[in-house]
Simulated assay, not measured.
Amino acid sequence: MIGARVFCITTALQRSSIFFFPKISTRPVYRLSPATRPVVAMSTTTSINQDELDSIFKQKRVVRSTLRKSLKAMDPSLRIQQDDAIQNTLLEAPWFKSCRRLCAYISCKSLNEVDTSKILSQILQHPDPNTVAQKKLYVPRVEDKNSNMCMLHISHMDDLIANSMNILEPAPVDAQGNKREDVMQADEPIDLFILPGLAFDRCGRRLGRGGG
């Protein structure tokens, strides 16, 4: 999987960021005030002690709280407009059209993630007419209470079921009762990863939701 392109989608600082490609800017970058912006002091030693780690985690919690409030207050019509623009940009990108194997997240409305339903539908329902081979899609499934995940292959939107959190994910077996292919057992490397995030900065550094 080394060398795969990564397209990261966020709903906060900048609603989409592409690594290794020109950035897509659909709204001004949201800047935190100096009081809440995470500033991590560099240690003079090669190791970070527990106090420094605690300080980093505390700053990240403050940033997450600020961003969640910003997302909650976002105008719904603007969110829909931006989601559509981001998905259209990705679908028209030459590197997306040329990829044959990819991993993508299934957006969750309650988490205010950028919608990926149009992307998934395009992959699964409309194979590329210029090639015989259809894109092979892997999506996440939570395996246990510790939120460990695997990425399983799906062929149709009907392969998805709602979990206990009402988030769509693939059933562990297909309609014929066969175990779904895990991306870690795939014969070919992945070309593209589409990942969610709470925020990204201009250098592409990602802030997740704190789930580990």
Rank of each mutant, 00 (worst) to 15 (best):
C150S: 09
R68G: 02
S77I: 09
D191G: 02
I194G: 00
V63E: 10
T89H: 14
G197W: 04
G204M: 13
P38H: 02
I119F: 07
V62P: 01
T89S: 13
Y138F: 15
D182H: 09
M165K: 09
F19G: 02
L111T: 08
M74D: 10
H156F: 09
P140W: 11
A35E: 14
S117T: 15
M151T: 05
L192H: 10
F200K: 03
A162I: 05
A4M: 13
F20M: 07
Q82M: 13
D83E: 13
S117M: 08
Q134T: 15
I24Q: 06
R15C: 12
I24M: 09
F20V: 03
D51K: 02
I48V: 09
K135E: 04
K72C: 09
E52K: 00
N146E: 07
H156C: 12
L137S: 06
T46Q: 01
R79Q: 07
R27W: 13
K97I: 15
L91M: 13
K23N: 09
E181K: 03
I9G: 02
S33R: 08
I48G: 00
L120Y: 06
P189N: 04
V40H: 02
V139A: 04
T44P: 00
A186Y: 01
T11Y: 14
K179F: 05
P127N: 11
R27H: 12
I9A: 12
V63H: 14
L137P: 06
P38Y: 02
V132C: 12
A12S: 14
P196M: 04
K109N: 12
L152E: 00
T45S: 05
G211V: 00
E181W: 00
T66I: 03
W95N: 10
E181I: 06
Y30S: 03
R202N: 13
T66R: 14
S43Y: 00
E188Y: 12
K69G: 05
R101H: 13
D159T: 05
I86H: 08
M1R: 08
I123P: 06
S164P: 00
V114G: 04
P129K: 11
Q59C: 02
V114C: 08
D201K: 07
L192S: 09
C150I: 13
V142R: 04
P129S: 05
L120F: 10
L32H: 04
S107M: 01
S110R: 12
L102V: 05
V132L: 12
S16L: 12
K179G: 03
P34G: 02
I86Y: 06
L71F: 05
T45Q: 01
M151R: 02
I2P: 05
A186M: 03
V63P: 00
M149A: 01
V173W: 01
H126V: 08
N49T: 00
S43D: 00
D84N: 15
A73Y: 10
S55R: 07
P76V: 14
E143R: 10
M157W: 05
L32D: 03
P127Y: 10
D75E: 11
W95I: 07
V40D: 00
D51S: 05
T36D: 12
L78V: 14
F19T: 11
L102W: 06
Q14A: 07
I194V: 15
I161N: 04
T116M: 03
A85F: 15
F21S: 10
P38E: 01
T66H: 11
Q125D: 14
